[in-house]
Every structure is written in structure tokens, then in C-alpha cells.
Design a protein around this nucleic acid. Structure first.
Lengths: 235, 235
DNA sequence: ACAAAAGTGTTCGTTCTACACCCATGC
DNA sequence: GCATGGGTGTAGAACGAACACTTTTGT
């Protein structure tokens, strides 16, 4: 791995799939491209490494805060997959490292940096309908959504979609929306509350959803679920 | 993601964690570095992208066949994670895409290309003892082994450690060796043979392990396991 | 006959599923 | 009171763990 000659110089980019739940839909943050190629098309937020000294994770976090204008608190960020097809960018050879970010429902993103506009778009609308995204971003998005769906089964990332305090119902609706299937209210309640260190009761209650007041929880320290909360794959 | 100015040129490498089972141990293929930096140290096989037109997966496959001298049949190859810490290579900025490859027990690897020697080394020896590997390769190896262990639970990659035909015992020993824990022979047998399209009986039998002849199987088409074969995490 | 490994059956406890039922609030 | 959502109880099915037992070979 050492020959100094003939090492192609490559540009390395970081692309983010930023997911949230708004209006009871799984939505992804997209930017409208201001320049060629794919000018005017929608694309994932992202960009090239800013300097020789920037780590990949740092670059992903920087892009995220630049585009959303938000502090990095209560944020889930994970590297997904690296895409390196030779002509995925028509200008030059670009390798893109895809990241998955998950946020609670937030105010409108602030357009910033090289993005002329940033907005939330329902995922099903992006994947099922035209126009497709710029570059291979539709593929990256599809991979990210599939990863998120699996992560709900085995990990506690569902809480990353929720604000600091949330009810079991809020959490359940995350599962239902991301998976696109309904879940038995009562069994779900028992399952999530019985996992050690998953949900910490705050002692407070809320009636924001109507009906009997629901207990409020905050995320616990556990990051993996044993046993898993499995999707019904027969449906 | 578009400013043409100030895009750092980066070298992109592919590093492989090639695993197999030899002498009842999980072993990894390492090469001894012939040049600086880390000359004489052990490292993962890998190298830079060969040309502007080479895809990442293609590069990984090329490196693998170059180092092992083997055809790409009956091979599991999967992208793992991308490592981009600023000074992970002292010479220049290098981003490395890590791959996991799994092979059945094979003849000694053929040293080739830029590797002065390639050999199998037990994983526990590499991770637990000195000397450490070159670059951040110890970290990449540890990540890969952890990934392989999890993949055994949810997917059928265990068969990638086995030759074309194998017994249920052979498969079980893969699980026991990779996980480092023993498994009940009888429950395992029932579990794996009851998963649809996991193991296809060839009709043949073998007595190579002594005792009653065991049925021989080949891999089926299934790639995921429902339900999973879970490790006993309490041990 | 005996050792050794393959493979089957059975029991028991845990977990999942479906659903009946009660609880606490707003109107 | 009644609608609405929160939360508990419980019976049956499905599954996994443990282990007794039978089968089929080599020596």
C-alpha cells in the first residue's frame, strides 16, 4: 500500500442524511443546489473536507451545524457507508462518506454556507416520486432509512427523534412512523418500560395528547436493546 | 458541497481484514511492511486506489486477489467503516475504507505485489499482545471482528468460513470459535436446520469427524436469519 | 463391545401476542 | 356522564435452554 507513484488524488466529501419526524411523517433535510452540476436539483446537505486536519466525524458535525444552525446537543450521528463509484460526480473523482443524523422536531432549518435553501421533505415523497435527487443521493438516502429502521429494532436511537422529555406514546409513534406499521399500544408500553436504563421517569406528567395524563420520560444510558423490539416482517 | 477552491486532495486507500479459521482459531491475514513508515511492522493488506476509474469494492476485491492469489469464488466481502483521522498516516492525508473479507481455510497465501510477506496470525494474538499493527490497523481489526461476531447472529455469513460442503458440526465450530463460547450441540442443530434456505442437504455424508456419519450441506440462498442465533451475552 | 459424534424428543421457563379491563383526565 | 388516551392483567402460542435418549459409524 505504499507506492508513492500513481496514487490518484481524490476529493473526499461528507454527505448527511438528516432525519426527523414532522407532521407525523419521516422527513429528510434537503438543500437545493445553487451551482452545477445538478443546479436547481435537491441534494443531501454535505461538503468537502474543510482542511487537511479535519476528521471525518468532525466534518460531518460541522456540516450539520452549518446547515441547521443548531447546537450539537441531543443529536445522534453515525457513519453509514462510503460511496466511491468512479463517475458519481461528473466533475472529478469524489468519494463520499455518508452519515446518518437524527434530530427531534425542530424549527425550520437555517439555510447557510453553500446551500441556497434547506428544507424538510417527507422521505416517501423523495423515494417514491420524481424528481430524483442529485448524484447518487437517492441511493444514500434509501440506505440510511433502511439502516435507521434496523437500528430501531436493536438500539435506542428512537429516542433521538424525541425531545428531552417524552411519553411512551411519543416513542411509539416514532416506531410506527419510521416502520410504517402499527404497534400494539399495551405490549409496546410494557416492553419499553421493562428494559433497564432505556427510559427514566422524570416524575412529571402531561395531558398534551388528551385523555389520562401520561408519564414523561427522558433517555437512559442504554444504547442497545435486549431483547430487541422486532418488526412484524410478515406484513 | 461545491466550492472548487480549497478542496484538500486526499489519498484514498482500501484496507482489508481477511478472516479465516485455521487450527481451530480465528486468524487474520497480515503483511509485513517492506517500506517506511512502519517498515518491518505487521499491517493489514490493502493499498491505494489503482486508478481514477476504480470503484471501492473493485479495489478491495483486487487487493484481495493480489494478496491471496485466489479466485473470488465463495468469498464474503463487505465494506465496514471509513477511517479518516488527520494523522493516521504520517506521510500525508489518507482516508482508508475498511473491508471485511471471510474465507474458508485455504493454503498459505501467496505474497504478491507490494507486500514482502503475507501470513495468517491468530486474532487473539494480534489484539492481546505486542507488537501492535502499523497505522490504526489494530483498531480496524477490532472493529471488523466485532462486526463479524454480530453478523453471525443475524446473517448467514458463518457459511463463508466453511468449504463448499460442510456439516452442522463444522458450522457450529465456526460459531464457537468466532464467539469464543460453547454452544449446545443439539439445540444448534435443530435451529440451523429449521431455518428455510439456510442449509441445503447435498444427500452425501461424511465420517471425517469420527462417530456417526454426518449429513453434508451447502449454503442456501438466505442471507438473514429469522429468528437470529443469539449469543449468550451473560457469559 | 465400546467410544464418539449425529441427531431426536421432552420438559420447563421465558417471551410474544392478543385482547379484556380499569384509570385519570378534559369537556 | 362520556370520550379519549394511559396503563395493567391474563391466557394461549411460540420460542429457547437444558438434558435424557437413540442412532450409526470406527476400532
Amino acid at each position: 500500500m505504499d507506492d508513492e507513484w500513481s496514487i490518484p488524488a481524490v476529493a473526499v466529501a461528507v454527505d448527511l442524511v438528516v432525519l426527523t419526524i414532522r407532521s407525523a411523517q419521516l422527513q429528510v433535510m434537503l438543500v437545493e443546489r445553487g451551482i452545477e452540476p445538478f443546479r436547481g436539483k435537491l441534494a443531501l446537505p454535505g461538503g468537502f473536507l474543510a482542511s487537511e486536519d479535519e476528521d471525518l466525524d468532525t466534518a460531518a458535525m460541522r456540516e450539520l451545524t452549518e446547515e441547521t444552525g443548531l447546537p450539537a446537543e441531543s443529536l445522534f450521528l453515525e457513519q453509514l457507508h462510503t460511496y466511491g463509484a468512479p463517475r458519481r460526480d461528473p466533475r472529478r473523482r469524489v468519494i463520499s462518506v455518508g452519515y446518518l443524523a437524527i434530530l427531534p422536531d425542530l424549527p425550520e432549518p437555517v439555510a447557510g454556507g453553500d446551500a441556497s435553501a434547506a428544507s424538510w421533505v417527507p422521505v416517501h415523497q423523495v423515494l417514491r416520486r420524481r424528481p430524483a435527487l442529485a448524484f447518487d443521493h437517492a441511493r444514500i438516502l434509501a440506505d440510511a432509512v433502511e439502516r435507521a429502521r434496523r437500528r430501531l429494532e436493536y438500539t435506542t436511537i428512537a429516542t433521538a427523534f424525541c425531545p428531552a422529555q417524552f411519553t411512551v406514546s411519543d416513542l411509539r409513534s416514532v416506531y410506527e412512523i419510521v416502520w410504517g406499521q402499527s404497534i400494539d399500544i399495551r405490549n409496546f408500553h410494557r416492553k419499553v418500560t421493562s428494559v433497564e436504563d432505556f427510559l427514566i421517569p422524570t416524575g412529571e406528567r402531561t395531558t398534551k395528547n388528551g385523555g389520562r395524563p401520561a408519564a414523561l420520560y427522558r433517555r437512559g444510558k442504554t444504547e442497545t436493546l435486549h431483547p430487541a423490539i422486532l418488526r412484524d416482517s410478515t406484513r
